[in-house]
């Protein structure tokens, strides 16, 4: 299972392209640094594997992988699954916060509308259905 570094240059180049896209998104403030750091680290690790395949091959052997490609797939899929799970947690938190904010906004807006009504028509009692 001897590999030359040329075999993995394409792989490292793809990681570099994705990292550049990620950096562009960061510079344009389309994504936050806090949420992207783990992704950048993931790309750097994959890029290092592509640039230094001998070290990765040795590690793969030690971990019991017969083929370097199996090691790569296993590592990449595991890391992506973790990243996806992390994104899911963040997304769920944001969703719950957005629900609460939507509710609070509606409650406050209704209160402001009522106050405005009272200010504009101080002598008019609101005709609430079935208010006895």
């Amino acid at each position: 299972m001897t590999q030359s570094s040329d075999d993995y240059l394409v792989f490292a180049a793809v990681c570099l392209v994705i990292a550049i896209v990620l950096l562009r998104l960061l510079l344009r403030e389309r994504i936050t640094l806090q949420g992207s750091m783990s992704y950048l680290v993931f790309l750097m690790v994959l890029g290092a594997i592509g640039l230094f395949p001998q070290a990765s091959t040795a590690l793969a052997h030690r971990l019991g992988f017969a083929l370097m490609s199996n090691f790569l797939f296993c590592t990449a899929i595991s890391a992506l699954a973790i990243l996806h799970l992390r994104a899911l947690v963040t997304l769920s938190k944001v969703h719950l916060r957005s629900v609460t904010l939507t509710q609070e906004l509606a409650i406050l807006q209704e209160r402001i509308d009522r106050l405005d009504d009272q200010r504009e028509r101080p002598n008019v009692v609101r005709a609430s259905p079935s208010a006895r």
Partner: peptide, 28 residues
Amino acid sequence: AAGARVLRLSRNLGIGGAVQSGIRVARR
């Protein structure tokens, strides 16, 4: 027009989010 108070949610939260808004008003 029928004289009810109206809470307008800026986006569709589903029935649960809507009911909870009313529950929050009742408590407060």
